[in-house]
């Protein structure tokens, strides 16, 4: 039983990070009906920028702020240059274009930051906390990760429910035509959504980097997990992304703990397939994903 609790605690941090990345996917899907497969590429890129800032200034906080800003800028660039010009009915085109962006970003990162995998310095103590006579598999850093995730979720919830900007975002996502008639500047609101998602993804990137390493391809698996989570959660639902994200982190930790970490992607694939067979629209969504 104690090992079970250990695995659960150990999965909380990674679950929060997966949840954040899924949240970024959901934010973009809600506003533009595009799954941004380049999201992890953007996050990887901003994390490299953060690493440069950190080695230059020595401060993790400045690096974090830099990553947030870079994420927003990159999100806006991708939306302006790539997604906005894609024809509206060309869903295949939009998906393929985001993969083009992913490939280009990974190559560019390889050019700018050569040398393969790099370690990201630990901003906080990442060894288990000693409490009540034993070492727990959860560290100060895990608490920081969970705390930042919670803050972000709280902030986004407030933004969507309590501000007029959030209201116009919801309106633009729900029905762009009517929103436009009601005076919402839809395209500007959509761009803001991409900036927001870019920042959330950047936070996920900078949080995951210290516990793994960072290289142009190191976030690929995170894309698979985040997409799985976003789909199971319903692609539309912030709550879904967060709760399924944490849940998936626990599952991955349990699977890795009781068997082997190599099984984790296979289990994620099984979860995804099972979900798509049984309830393709996702657990937290009312929309229809299945058409036939």
């Amino acid at each position: 039983m104690t090992t079970f609790i250990d695995y659960v605690l150990g999965g909380l941090g990674s679950g929060a990070i997966i949840a954040l990345m899924a949240l970024a996917l959901v934010l973009i899907w809600r506003s533009t009906r595009v799954v941004n497969f380049a999201q992890v590429g953007q996050a990887m890129f901003t994390t490299f920028i953060a690493l440069s800032i950190q080695t230059w200034t020595g401060s993790w906080y400045i690096a974090l702020i830099g990553a947030l800003a870079a994420g927003a800028v990159l999100g806006v660039i991708v939306q302006y240059l790539v997604l906005r010009p894609v024809k509206r009915n060309d869903t295949s085109g939009a998906i393929i274009a985001t993969f083009g962006v992913l490939i280009a970003l990974q190559a560019a990162a390889g050019m700018i930051w050569p040398g393969g995998s790099q370690a990201f310095p630990q901003p906080f103590n990442n060894s288990g906390i000693e409490f009540a006579g034993r070492v727990w598999p959860i560290s100060i850093y895990d608490f920081v990760v969970i705390g930042i995730t919670a803050l972000l979720v709280l902030g986004l919830t407030l933004l969507f429910t309590k501000t007029s900007l959030g209201l116009s975002m919801r309106a633009a996502a729900f029905n762009p035509e009517v929103a436009k008639l009601s005076g919402v500047r839809v395209s500007r609101v959509l761009t803001f959504g991409w900036a927001l998602a870019g920042s959330v993804g950047a936070v996920a990137g900078i949080l995951v980097a210290p516990v793994s390493t960072i290289s142009p391809n190191s976030f690929d698996i995170l894309l698979v997990y985040a997409f799985t989570v976003a789909v199971i959660g319903g692609l539309d639902s912030l709550i879904g992304a967060i709760s399924i994200g944490v849940f998936t982190g626990l599952i991955i930790s349990l699977v890795s703990g009781y068997s082997d970490s190599g099984n984790a992607p296979v289990v994620a694939l099984l979860l995804l397939a099972l979900n798509l067979i049984l309830k393709p629209e996702g657990i937290f969504s009312h929309h229809k994903a299945r058409s036939v």
Binding site: I221, V231, L272, P280, R290, S291
Partner: peptide, 17 residues
């Protein structure tokens, strides 16, 4: 039975899985 992004995600999972 799946459309656009759902299918892309499923096949992405297959490519990794």
């Amino acid at each position: 039975r799946l459309r656009g992004p759902y299918l892309a995600g499923l096949t992405l999972g297959i490519a990794v899985g």
